[in-house]
Simulated assay, not measured.
Amino acid sequence: MTTHPPITIYTTPHCPYCHAAKALLKKKGVAFEEIDVQDAGLRQQMMIRANGRRTVPQIFIGETHVGGSDDMHELDRRGELDPLLSQQ
């Protein structure tokens, strides 16, 4: 099994962009920690970590803030996601 940096994705249950982001990560075969930010405290934690961004998902690969689903899919289209996933 390939190792990768820890991946954290802040989500809400009914967000289509969250589902799309998780689907891409699953397609890549990488494990991730999902944090449901319906809780105000967890949403605040996400906003601090994501430099004030309020929308979900917010995705982190290691300490790198990737951004949202569209940002991650764009990285994948440009061939820049796999190298991020394989960093240690």
Rank of each mutant, 00 (worst) to 15 (best):
S69F: 12
L75I: 09
R43P: 03
G68Y: 07
H65S: 09
A23D: 02
T8K: 13
I9C: 09
Y10F: 15
Q58R: 07
F32Y: 14
T12C: 11
D71A: 08
L84G: 11
E80N: 10
P57Y: 03
A31Y: 06
R78Q: 15
A50T: 06
L24A: 04
K22G: 01
V56H: 09
M46N: 03
M72G: 08
Q87W: 09
H19I: 14
E63R: 13
K28L: 03
E80A: 13
L75C: 08
K22E: 04
T3M: 09
T2F: 10
H65P: 07
H14A: 14
G67S: 13
E80L: 14
R43K: 14
V37C: 08
K27C: 00
H19P: 00
A20L: 05
L25T: 03
P13E: 04
Q58G: 06
P83W: 05
G29S: 05
D71P: 07
M47I: 09
R43S: 07
A20G: 00
H73T: 14
T2K: 13
H14W: 15
L25K: 01
D76F: 00
V37A: 02
V66I: 15
C15H: 10
L85K: 03
I35Q: 06
I59V: 13
P83D: 04
I48H: 07
R43N: 08
H65T: 08
P5T: 04
E33W: 00
S86H: 13
F32A: 04
N51E: 14
V56R: 01
Q45F: 08
H4D: 06
G29L: 01
D71V: 14
L42Q: 10
Q58C: 07
K26M: 05
E63I: 10
D36K: 10
G79F: 09
E63V: 13
P57C: 12
L25I: 07
L24T: 10
V56M: 11
T11L: 02
R77G: 06
H14Y: 13
C15T: 02
Q38L: 12
P13R: 15
H73R: 11
Q44T: 07
G29C: 04
T12S: 14
Y17S: 02
G79S: 09
V30G: 00
A23F: 04
Q58H: 07
P5G: 11
Q38A: 07
D39K: 05
N51T: 07
V56P: 02
V56D: 02
K26C: 08
M1N: 12
T11H: 03
I7W: 03
Q87K: 15
Q45L: 08
P83Y: 01
L84E: 11
Q58N: 09
D36F: 10
K28P: 02
D71E: 05
A40E: 14
K22A: 02
I35F: 04
V37W: 03
R78I: 05
L42Y: 04
V30C: 00
F32W: 08
Q44C: 06
F32G: 01
M72W: 02
E33F: 00
